[in-house]
Design a protein around this nucleic acid. Structure first.
Lengths: 196, 196
DNA sequence: CCTACCGATCGGTAGG
DNA sequence: CCTACCGATCGGTAGG
């Protein structure tokens, strides 16, 4: 039997949504026009609608992709039996990796989800909430096991998550500071603080 | 001579810009229309232009006000001779206070500054950069004096600032968790970390 | 502060 | 994938 090779083809829809992520990040979802997007990929604006339903549909693709990646990673982390601090470290490093490899889409998901249609927005926020809850559980585990300080677990999770969400402007330091150094500094600071 | 009493009058411009901050936060600058804004304060849209030059001018007022408040506070903190950790604590607590008292405007300044006209945007980013540099200097001072860990000062400053910028979704917890408890948790976590 | 209104631009459709 | 085009909405002005 012949080996079936599935070529890793980039579909037109993928090209469109990648360029949409770039454009939405640069100008914001509302200020970005479908005509600009079309120009980026050298077609006329109406041709976009052979691949997508409407503008919001594009935003939905971007946000769902990002949410799915984080959700799946959390599940992987939860599946392993590790100390809480190790799990947190894995989550933190994944955030940094995503910021480097999926900068535009992650930025858009973080900033433009308010413009999602109602159903998609509800689903997106639910996944976000689940992710947050997962981190809270890990922190509770760490407190129970005596590894972490007895902080308010939800505040602790939100503080870490908001620090990571702010990773955006670390993107430009990515060229100035070696990535691993950046990553290790952030991990260390979020886990053990800055004070001696 | 008669005592001159200056009444603390809220000008129409202030009413407009407060409502603009609310609207820009809720819908984003680009998606918010001047007609909606006018409706919020029960006048017709063209009447807005008796008080402002244009839509961008409103965004400018909001961002400049926020930037000015942070800049002045930093200068106050720098003027006192205190250990670096105390200075950082003051900055952190001020951020939290601003998030509670100027939520809309701070949110808009953080999220919508990209839509500022070029000159205003340059000035805004310069003030932000100065603020960041001020925090870096404080961290360097703390390292020199042996009080803080020898972290990369700029990464440390950006990590703290991005955590604080994410304060947005703590706004809703403000009713659930007592403000001082929230504040103390955040200060402690950012300074000393979560790990035992 | 209002009415009346304008030019520009938008997302999207029809039809091929 | 294109040309031709539409209805809606936008920021803003004129004139009082």
């Amino acid at each position: 039997m012949a080996r079936i090779v599935v070529p890793k083809k980039t579909t037109k829809l993928q090209v469109i949504s990648q360029n949409a992520a770039l454009l939405f990040r640069q100008k914001g979802y509302s200020a970005a026009s479908m005509r600009e997007l079309a120009e980026l990929i050298n077609i006329e604006a109406p041709s976009l609608y052979n691949h997508i339903d409407n503008k919001a549909h594009l935003l939905q693709l971007i946000c769902e992709d990002i949410a799915g990646k984080f959700t799946r990673h959390l599940e992987e982390v939860e599946a392993n039996e590790l100390p809480a601090s190790k799990k947190l470290e894995q989550l933190i490093r994944f955030h940094i990796k995503m910021m480097v490899t999926h900068f535009d889409a992650l930025f858009v998901a973080n900033h433009e989800w308010k413009h999602l249609p109602e159903l998609a927005q509800t689903a997106f926020l639910q996944q976000r909430k689940n992710y947050e809850n997962g981190m809270v559980q890990i922190i509770k585990q760490g407190i129970t096991e005596g590894e972490l300080k007895n902080h308010h677990p939800q505040i602790a999770a939100l503080t870490i998550l908001s620090a990571l969400r702010g990773l955006e402007f670390w993107h430009k330091y990515h060229k100035l500071v070696k990535e691993k150094i950046l990553e290790n500094n952030i991990v260390q600071q979020l886990l053990t603080g800055i004070k001696k």
